[in-house]
Design a protein around this nucleic acid. Structure first.
Lengths: 322, 322
DNA sequence: ATATTTATGCCAATCGTTTTTATAAATATC
DNA sequence: GATATTTATAAAAACGATTGGCATAAATAT
């Protein structure tokens, strides 16, 4: 592949001039500019971003770590991130850990070797792995100790909103399926839900679940409840399926509420009532905060906790919290 | 961040020795090796993959282009790709075009600047964009003219399998919802289905659809049919939802079959009958073929067309093709 | 005792950029 | 018309790695 020297030779100028022309920085005359453009086109020259990165000590790459790439919540987030990154002249490098701490460590190692300018880590599992990383890191959804920036939705309030519905409709037997304890978001969703119910003298049972397999065959358990709050839509969809398999009518026999508002939650039968997050805002803000850190600007003030909203669809009997 | 010179100084050896030690190539004594390892650890040194890439003219990155990152079919494929790539010492850089030809062109430009060693393009939309790219390219799912390797499932046969079910059960009114005409896979699924039916003197109606919005509110249309074959699971899930909204019982009033066997098709109510692809095989083989090309080995012979299978779940009345 | 092999580490060139410095030409200022 | 400034270009140094050739020392062979 052609390099900058080839272009310079073809255009009959020095390499520095070509460099200035490409980055349109410094002086370059109209006439010479044309010649260079021409040479670039003829040679199909693409500046080598790697060589540039070595010199400038900035790769213009942002590394993003998500725990599951088949879960639309994470991928929708990554869309917001990629768009905003591209808008600011950065490229996104996405890596999926499949919830494996080992993969997370490997990814971080890889990111460091490729000299990404910053990292956005979503729902991190293996927080020690970030300890000696010396590029800016934004943690989404979970608090990493240290001086990094953490942003997430107001998960606690999301739990409260769901509890409000339960209280308003005076539903007696309630189950929560809680996410892994290592996730702050999972803990907050539960405590918000529980605290609000307990304040009204109500109780809630709780079991833990992460993947679809964790709820397989629990139809008998579900039958004991009238209302289930599931910590994530991904899992709620599995729960809904279990209800179907067990012959439970939703929302007639049992009501279900999820969390995340992923793409497919609109498509279930019936469509899933869920707590929606400002997912695009979070992704975009994460990038802006990160880039401010990378470029050492004073960070524009952003939210730490993003608003959530209860979206009523078909898995609840009532369609309002009033 | 520490560089190789710092490590050499700390260990009291030359740079070349450190390099040899890292790449364990050439002679390095036990004793000196230990000292270098120690220095690397103390300085938290990570070899600069960019600088290495500049010199070796190999970035060890594979660029992957998919049209939609919220569609689990593409992300599941990317998992196979990433695993195999990692296994062979390559990193995957994933880019999502959101079905936009403009994004596809931008991505290819980006991949070239970052000097990826090869590209895997899935269901390409803008095939001219690949014309002057001079790294190996594997096209998955669509034929790109030129001398690149194209691999995909046996989509035609998938269509035939579904038709066999229709014939066996003597279903009268049949609709196919076809994917975009620009996709070879979409065309093949349709022609396989139609050819088989027509050979038995049956007929099939056909409409085109891509995104969920394309089937919104078509309940009235659906009511006219007893069987619908949808070109992708992603869309079939939307169709199933439309049936629910319109009060059609599946599979009682109408039967539905999808294609792809994505993660969520197991979770619908009822679970979706679908044509399953050897998705992991395809991803892994794509990488192997690509790496063989990159490293100029003679390519191990791989399939061009991967086998498909009809998986019976709940959206069909019968659970067999016998 | 000398020649050869083996083991080890250093030096310098190289990859494709960007950036600093130097220099020449064109224009502005007095 | 002489000097100062601006504009335009080129040559050279640097970025952080790899690598072939060279130098040295020790071990072995002749």
């Amino acid at each position: 592949m052609a390099n900058i020297r080839d272009v310079a030779k073809k255009a009959g100028v020095g390499i520095a001039t070509v460099s200035r022309c490409i980055n349109n920085d410094g002086y370059v005359s109209e006439e010479v500019g044309k010649k260079i453009e021409q040479a670039i086109k003829e040679l199909n020259y693409k500046p080598n971003a790697l060589a540039r990165a070595v010199f400038t000590k900035s790769s213009k790459m942002i590394g993003v770590i998500i725990p599951s790439i088949v879960n639309p919540f994470y991928t929708e987030l990554s869309i917001g991130i990629e768009n905003k990154a591209r808008e600011n002249g950065y490229s996104m490098v996405l890596s999926n850990t499949e919830y494996l701490a080992g993969n997370e460590a490997k990814t971080i190692e890889m990111f460091q070797r490729y000299r990404v300018d910053g990292i956005i880590a979503v729902d991190v599992k293996h927080s020690e792995a970030y300890d000696n990383v010396d590029v800016p890191i934004i943690s989404v959804g979970k608090e990493i100790p240290g001086n990094l920036k953490n942003i997430s939705s107001d998960n606690y309030r999301g739990g409260c909103l769901v509890a409000d519905y339960v209280i308003k409709n005076n539903i007696a037997s309630v189950l929560h399926i809680k996410g892994p304890d290592s996730l702050e978001s999972a803990r907050d969703r539960f405590t918000g839900f529980r605290d609000t119910l307990v304040a009204k003298g109500m109780t809630v049972d709780c079991i833990e679940g992460m993947y679809g397999e964790d709820v397989e065959g629990i139809g008998a358990v579900l039958k004991k409840y009238k209302f289930i709050f599931v910590w994530s839509d991904d899992l709620a969809i599995s729960v809904l399926n279990e209800c179907f398999v067990s012959g439970l009518n939703v929302p007639g026999d049992i009501e279900i509420v999820g969390f995340d508002d992923i793409y497919y939650s609109r498509k279930t039968c019936p469509p899933l009532t869920t707590v929606s997050q400002k997912i695009t805002d979070i992704g975009e803000d994460a990038v802006e905060i990160l880039i401010d850190k990378i470029e050492k600007k004073k960070s524009r003030r952003k939210n730490d906790n993003y608003d959530v909203e209860l979206i009523f669809r078909g898995t609840t009997k009532k369609c309002t919290n009033e």
